[in-house]
Structure formats: structure tokens, C-alpha cells
Design a binder for these strands. Structure first.
Lengths: 210, 210
DNA sequence: CCGCATCCGGGGCGATACTG
DNA sequence: CAGTATCGCCCCGGATGCGG
């Protein structure tokens, strides 16, 4: 909350989104779209509820987040990114790319995980690597949530929820899932780490190769 | 220093460089190259000296910064970025780009300024906007330090120190300098804000146009 | 339940003083 | 010059309370 007091674009940016949790809140809104307060709380394991409320107010004042009051019947307010907030996507992508090597060591014992976090690496790793005929529907099961990779005509998207009639379903811990998706890990090694699946692995190969 | 405890590339990156001052330390080392402790202290107005020492230790442990012990005669240790640290450049550029609109309001009353901070916006604004014949040498004087813009055969560089035989010397506060460099401000408006110069304004026009 | 506000303990942060 | 030492303060984290 305290300004650096430096007339520099980087310092001014950090004055706004440099505080703890701020960029992770933006991550949630980027990955999941408009969210209720409770959705954010669930997507940000470890945050204190008063801090989330504080940060949302600050980000609102800074023009990064907007509060969308739901119409009277539904009664649940939504938080969403403003256009200005969406422009942080390039920052998050670069930061995430820089952080990828830190994932290779595997999750720490206490690390939390949410399946929708896979959207960034999946769409990052597989973007533009996909062949023209690479249609595939792959469901990922990391334990709690399920998410689905949809690929068709050169686009890869990850959406929440299970798949109807998937080509492949992968079950495993986040480390093994990320390992095979990024090709850092072979299917053999991943299986020894507990990965198992139903369906045709070729569906994943179609995405990873090219 | 406290980890977010989330198995996510963005969160892991913030575990390393998300703490206060860390990215600004990287900025200094990126803009100025290897620095002595005192240089960093001067380039980071507002930081407490114990914090700088702490952060440098953390960044060293994380493999972002390396300490280069000088040979015995010179006796002054240098801090520099590792290759891993240099990869943060794309992050800083995107963050700086996002922060540019926050500069339009002008510096706050208490804001500090260092002339070498101009390197990011100058090389960002003018990169690839420069015509093939845009050779120019422009000295910038914002009060204390002086820096020089060197342009030749399509490349723009900003280096510390005054220029020998400059085409143009600009004197003014940071807001006016950034204003004319970015074309946000006309020369007329800048002059009313205190900007004055010696030499041919055409040298700057050669850079700004294209 | 959802969306916070309040209270409290610990530690990160900021300013100054001091030392080899 | 290059840090270390010390000391408030306020921010952060965790728990609980509470109105709609």
C-alpha cells in the first residue's frame, strides 16, 4: 500500500499491483472470468478473508477490478477485470513463463493446487504447437476439480468441468499431469508416479507433437 | 519471504521476486549493469540499507543475482544479474509498459527520480520507430545526472554521462522530458513547463517521427 | 451460506545509528 | 564504502463474529 515514491513506470506499476496477493487475484479473474467473493477465496488458498476484501477495494479504486452488482433476484455480486486489468495478461504470462522452471522440482509438501490453474501452462505449452487435424478432448482429474482440454482446428482451450465422451481421461497428481503435458516426463515415469488413464494416449500425442 | 504455498508457476515466481523491492533491484542491475552496493542504494531511493542487504542475499540464494568479488587491488565487490536474472527483462518490460499510463499524471510531490531510469521508456518508445538515416546524439539533463541518447543505423541506446558534441541538449524536469520524448507533449507545452534546450530540435524529430 | 468487519499476535518493513 | 544492529510500527495472517 505504501508507494515507492519513484517517478518510474515500473515503480508506479508496482505501486498498484505489487502488493501481496494482488497479481494472484488478477490471475483468478483472468483464468475464471467474473467471480463471486467465495470463488476467489477458494481459488486463492492461504489468503485471509479480510485481506481479500481489502485488496478488492484497492484494485477497484485503481481501476483494475470492477464490481458488478447482480440484479436483485440472483443477489450475488460479481468481481471482474476492467479492460485496464485485462491488459495485465501479458505481464502474468511473462511472469508465469519465468516461473516454469521452479515447477520442475515438484510441489512442496504444503502446496495447494487448483485444477483451473492448469489453464495457463496448458494454453501456453500447447499453443501453436497443434497440428491442423489435432482434434481432441481430454479430461484431467487431479483429485477434486475436473477440467477439460478442448482442441479443434488449431486452437487449444481448457475449460472447467468434465468432458462428455472424452478421447482420454488422465488421473494423477499435478506434478505428473504437468509433466506429461509439457513433455518433461515420459508416460512410463508418470505411471510410476501414480498417473493412470482411460482412453487413447494418442489423443495427447496429437497435441504434444507437431 | 513467505511462500504462497501454491503449485502454480505464477505463484512460484512471486515467491522469488514478489517481495518488496526485489523487482526494482533487478531493474537497477538491468539498466546499469554490474553495480556496487552504494550504486544500488543511490538508484533505489527510499530503500533501507538493511533491506537492500537482505534482498541481495535472498536473490543470490535464488540464483537471480551473483556477487562478483573484485580482485584484491580494487577491493570493491560488484553485484550482477545471472543469466536467470536477465531473463526477467521481458517481465520488467511488460510491467513497465503497463505502468506508462500511470506516468501521465506527472510525478507526485515526493517522487524521486534518477536519469538512468529513462533508459527503459526511451528504448521502448523509440525502438523500431527510428528511420534508417536517424543518426542523432541528444543529451538529457534532468537536474543531477546527465544521460545521452545515441542513435545510429536504426538503433537507439541511452548511456550515462554527457555527450561530446551533441546535436541537442534538453534541460527540464522528468515530466517534460518524458512528455516530449513520448510525443505526449508538444514542445510549446513543454517549454511552458520549464523545458529549454540548446541545439537543433530536428535531431529529436528525426527520432520521434517515422 | 455469502460477504465481509473486528480483534489480536508475529514479523516484515522503514528509519536511524553504528562499525570494520 | 559496505554493510550490521536496533527499534517502532504497521502490514499480514488466522480466527471469530455478524448482518443480509
Amino acid at each position: 500500500v505504501r508507494s515507492y515514491g519513484q517517478y518510474c513506470a515500473l515503480a508506479k506499476a508496482l505501486d498498484v499491483i505489487g502488493d501481496r496477493w494482488n497479481l494472484l487475484i488478477v490471475r483468478e479473474l483472468l483464468l475464471r472470468g467474473p467471480c463471486r467473493y467465495t470463488d476467489l477465496l477458494h481459488g486463492l488458498p492461504g489468503i485471509a478473508t479480510n485481506l481479500l476484501a481489502d485488496r478488492l477495494r484497492e484494485l477497484e479504486r485503481a481501476g483494475v477490478v470492477a464490481r458488478e452488482e447482480a440484479p436483485p433476484p440472483v443477489a450475488s455480486g460479481l468481481f471482474k477485470l476492467t479492460p485496464r486489468g485485462e491488459q495485465l495478461e501479458r505481464v502474468l504470462v511473462e511472469l508465469g513463463r519465468w516461473g516454469v522452471p521452479l515447477m520442475a522440482a515438484g510441489p512442496a509438501e504444503q502446496d495447494a493446487f487448483r485444477a483451473h490453474w492448469l489453464r495457463m501452462p496448458v494454453e501456453l505449452f500447447l499453443r501453436e504447437r497443434v497440428g491442423a487435424d489435432a482434434a481432441a478432448r481430454i479430461e484431467l482429474d487431479s483429485g477434486e476439480e475436473r477440467v477439460t482440454i478442448d482442441s479443434s482446428d488449431g486452437h487449444v482451450r481448457l475449460r472447467p468441468g468434465p468432458a462428455a465422451d472424452p478421447d482420454l481421461v488422465l488421473h494423477g497428481d499435478p506434478y505428473a499431469l504437468l509433466g506429461v503435458l509439457s513433455r518433461r516426463m515420459s508416460f512410463e515415469d508418470a505411471r510410476e508416479r501414480g498417473l493412470h488413464w482411460q482412453g487413447e494416449l494418442a489423443a495427447l500425442e496429437r497435441l504434444r507433437v507437431t
